[in-house]
Write a protein that binds this DNA or RNA. Structure first.
Lengths: 181, 181
DNA sequence: GTGAAGTGATTAGGGTGCTAATTATCAGCC
DNA sequence: GGCTGATAATTAGCACCCTAATCACTTCAC
């Protein structure tokens, strides 16, 4: 489920042409922007295809990985609210994700003995086996995708992407952040 | 509607730690991958927020821009199938997008006189006015987002992203491409 | 205690994407 | 002419994401 985008990016000459009509249009900025969205979508597609073959979605995978981290670490409990907060979706969306994961016997909801409003979500043994079976191919795909880049190029790319990400969060702060108090 | 992702990327030390458990995990490749998806999502969000304030979505915007190009260029006709092909969605999805755009008086469906299976989709005058009113802010946001990057850095970023995109299409060709004979 | 406010999870309803199946039309071959 | 297969668009049904409203429970003030 990639973001809908132009399949073929406009050529640079077309951007220059369009700039005549729109004085605000900076061709080099647009070119970076379009390439960033396109390549991000392609990277997403590479792993998402693998997920789909195994009945997963990016959302389901993210939830499983968050729970997997918990299971390997110290804390064994995770509430739907915490999962939603850490994966960047609303609680309502998390309810739906947990619904389908529970239906597929990947997670279980357990009531919190201390506070009856809360639940604890845990991975099933089936989920652990499942993750162990798909993660090697997942990492293989990422390595393959990045194989054209040298270590130096990787550092450069992370640095330049970071500049954009910082600018995005400063000039256009996310609005869906729940304000606590 | 960003791709669901970790809100906070794992630190590099965590990737190193995880690599002990999964021999296939290349920390630098994962780091680039995660930053690419995260930054791509942030960039998407910056423009999508603006769209949402004006009752648009990325998909609706892409369709309008494709039709706008047509309207400015020579050919004035565009079938749903052609729009779907060029924007990378299925025809069924395009039917839905055109449905809502037509409901909002942004486009009109016109029957093809030669082939009664086909339709031609055209922008309304209202859509042209609307696009002229939102595009300046759209480009302003893109320029602002890319303002931390020098021209040299922009060229570097486009080149590195291109390497990944090429690798993605070679090693993991898209499957939803409709094969025409 | 008891009522008010706050918090956790869910439900209701909408938008957008997908695949698969359907309907209408065209084109070719007997 | 009429059957067969291809093609255009749509519909049906599912998943996932959102916002807003709702329900259950806790906590705090009085």
């Amino acid at each position: 489920m990639p973001h809908l985008l132009l399949k073929d990016l406009p050529r640079y000459e077309c951007l220059l042409e369009a700039a005549k009509q729109f004085p605000n249009l900076d061709p080099s900025a647009c070119e970076v922007f379009l390439n960033l969205l396109r390549t991000g979508d392609e990277a997403f597609r590479v792993t998402d295809e693998h997920f789909q073959h195994n009945g997963l979605s990016q959302g389901r995978f993210t939830v499983l990985m968050l729970l997997f981290d918990k299971a390997c670490g110290q804390s064994h409990s995770c509430t739907p609210a915490a999962l939603a907060e850490r994966s960047g979706v609303t609680r309502a969306t998390m309810t739906g994700l947990i619904d389908t994961l529970e239906r597929d016997a990947m997670v279980v909801r357990k009531p919190d003995p201390a506070d009856r409003r809360m639940l604890s979500v845990e991975l099933t043994p089936r989920a652990l086996t499942f993750l162990a079976s798909i993660l090697p191919e997942h990492f293989r795909r990422i390595n393959d995708l990045m194989s054209p880049l040298s270590e130096t190029e990787r550092r450069t790319l992370v640095r330049l992407l970071g500049k954009i990400a910082v600018r995005a969060s400063e000039a256009f702060p996310a609005t869906n952040t729940l304000v606590h108090a």
